[in-house]
Design a protein around this nucleic acid. Structure first.
Lengths: 162, 162
DNA sequence: TATTGTTATACTCTATAACTATA
DNA sequence: TATAGTTATAGAGTATAACAATA
């Protein structure tokens, strides 16, 4: 066993199972996310939110409205404006105007943005594969399924509350 | 199916299984963490790092050195100093000096800190239970086991790299 | 009136690096 | 020389709220 103190050590043996599960989930996520953030910074001098925004655009060849990005990334409009400003200054995305609604902007990757993102996405995928590929196939399947159920659970509770 | 666009929509069907698994993990974690952060803010006017620090101290009746907190919370010494300053100002923790090493500080919860933390911890546990308890027992077990494997995997890779 | 996006502001968290005091 | 903690600094990310233009 590796001696790696971490957040999960905050759990006590008598704690409720759900709590221990949550702390383990959080620890895993933080470890992996930290690894990815660090590498994005080191190898590509960028951040996770910038990468996420570009990933969303990559999946939307016709571009995406800023409000839609805000919903998907679950941050406020103002934040999207800020991240977009940076990316546009670097020539990676571009705001375009739509015909029927002059309030809206549609964001698209520039050719340069597509090129840069392709390189980042390839590296990113390799990092992730490296971290997950040691897991037995059935564990991966079980995780995927369990997390799917968990997500539904959490999302539907949120919908109830509002 | 609930229409809730989120980070996971960034995955494409052709993406590697590991990548889809990671995005789902990240989405779950962000949803739950956001919920907890929001409630900590609303109900107790505090933050997750502050709560985490107090949780660590709660588990260490004799207190804990700041360096140890830094390792467990995986942040730098300077950050621990900052969070500690806030909590000490609010009378929730206290720095104490140790006999044999005058450089070190040992942090402890004050009686007031223990009282406040107990209330927060109870509420926190209920939030978490509420989010996880809808999961079938075998799904929870599978998640716990799979995440344990994943954590080992990631931690040991980190150890190799350094 | 409601919506889209922008701006201004403030705050938390974070890391880096230089520093003090002790060991 | 090394370690424990502090300080100073800078930057990212976040939310809130007021705002302009448009629907």
């Amino acid at each position: 066993m590796i001696d790696a103190p971490d957040l999960e050590t905050r759990a006590a043996p008598e704690d409720h199972h759900a709590l221990r599960l949550w702390l383990r989930l959080l620890t895993c996520c933080n470890l992996i996310e930290g690894e990815i953030r660090g590498r994005l910074r080191l190898d590509f001098d960028t951040t996770l939110p910038r990468f996420d925004l570009m990933a969303q655009l990559q999946r939307a060849p016709k571009g995406m409205k800023m409000g839609e990005l805000s919903r998907r990334m679950m941050v406020t409009n103002g934040n999207i404006t800020g991240i977009t400003d940076q990316l546009e200054k670097e020539g990676l995305v571009v705001r375009t105007k739509v015909e029927n609604d002059r309030r809206s902007s549609v964001l698209k990757l520039t050719p340069q943005g597509r090129k840069v993102f392709a390189r980042m996405a390839r590296a990113h995928e390799n990092w992730v594969k490296g971290m997950f590929d040691g897991l037995p196939e059935d564990s991966r399947d079980a995780l995927f399924k369990g997390l799917g159920e968990l997500k539904l659970q959490v999302v539907s509770r949120r919908a109830e509350d509002k």
